[in-house]
Amino acid sequence: MAATLEIFQKLNYRGLPPHGEDSQELILPRSVDACPNVEPQARRMLAETLHAMFHSLGTSVSELMRADKVEYLFAEEYITGAVPPSRDFIDHLVRDYEEMHGPLSDKARTYLLAMYVTSLEMIPRTPEA
């Protein structure tokens, strides 16, 4: 597990410019400690990233629901880590985030997808009878 998290960090920070230079790539935001009770760490990292992306939109879940964005129905549960997000939610959040902040880099997309897949792998499975 530690190796997977290390890979996430490398994907998110690789290619950062030397100190003092601008980067053309957008690195994903993260609300560190926004979801302190979410375990395992991979799920917490995803929730904190979604939390930061969502709050950067400067709107509320109810406003998005009024705008007929049904994919935000469970946004509060997703961005707090209470429930693993759907892929549709992530796709719509990325689209709205990019409209406001510009396109994500390929590395940022890879990082987000890797966190999503790993968080799904962490969901406890019920034993088959």
Results as ranks from 00 to 15, higher is better:
1 M>K: 09
3 A>I: 13
4 T>V: 14
5 L>V: 13
6 E>R: 10
6 E>G: 09
7 I>R: 12
8 F>R: 03
9 Q>Y: 13
10 K>D: 13
10 K>A: 15
10 K>V: 14
10 K>F: 13
11 L>G: 12
13 Y>S: 15
13 Y>L: 14
14 R>E: 15
14 R>M: 15
15 G>H: 06
15 G>V: 06
15 G>R: 09
16 L>Q: 05
17 P>I: 01
17 P>H: 12
18 P>Q: 11
18 P>E: 15
18 P>A: 13
19 H>I: 08
19 H>Q: 12
20 G>P: 03
20 G>K: 06
20 G>D: 04
21 E>G: 02
21 E>V: 10
22 D>A: 12
22 D>V: 06
22 D>N: 07
23 S>L: 13
26 L>R: 09
26 L>S: 11
28 L>T: 01
29 P>Y: 01
29 P>T: 03
30 R>Y: 06
32 V>E: 09
32 V>I: 13
33 D>I: 10
34 A>W: 05
36 P>A: 05
37 N>D: 12
38 V>Q: 01
40 P>C: 15
40 P>F: 14
40 P>H: 10
41 Q>V: 11
42 A>K: 00
42 A>F: 01
43 R>V: 02
43 R>I: 01
44 R>Q: 14
44 R>W: 06
46 L>S: 10
47 A>H: 00
48 E>F: 11
48 E>V: 15
50 L>C: 02
51 H>I: 08
51 H>D: 11
51 H>N: 15
51 H>M: 15
53 M>S: 06
53 M>Y: 08
55 H>L: 13
58 G>R: 07
59 T>I: 12
60 S>E: 07
60 S>Y: 09
60 S>Q: 08
60 S>T: 13
61 V>D: 06
61 V>F: 04
62 S>Y: 13
62 S>G: 06
63 E>V: 07
64 L>A: 03
66 R>F: 04
66 R>G: 04
67 A>P: 07
68 D>L: 06
69 K>T: 02
69 K>A: 05
70 V>F: 02
72 Y>A: 00
72 Y>R: 01
73 L>H: 09
73 L>Y: 09
74 F>K: 05
75 A>P: 02
78 Y>A: 01
78 Y>T: 01
79 I>P: 00
79 I>A: 00
80 T>F: 05
80 T>K: 08
81 G>E: 00
82 A>D: 15
82 A>K: 11
85 P>N: 08
86 S>Q: 05
92 H>K: 07
97 Y>Q: 04
98 E>D: 03
99 E>L: 15
100 M>W: 05
100 M>A: 13
102 G>W: 05
102 G>M: 08
102 G>V: 06
103 P>K: 08
103 P>Q: 12
103 P>D: 11
104 L>K: 06
105 S>T: 07
106 D>P: 03
108 A>K: 04
108 A>T: 03
110 T>P: 02
110 T>V: 14
110 T>Y: 14
111 Y>F: 11
112 L>F: 06
113 L>T: 09
114 A>S: 07
115 M>G: 02
120 L>G: 06
120 L>D: 09
121 E>F: 10
122 M>F: 09
122 M>T: 11
123 I>E: 08
123 I>K: 02
124 P>N: 08
125 R>F: 14
126 T>L: 07
126 T>R: 13
127 P>Q: 11
127 P>D: 08
129 A>S: 05
129 A>L: 10
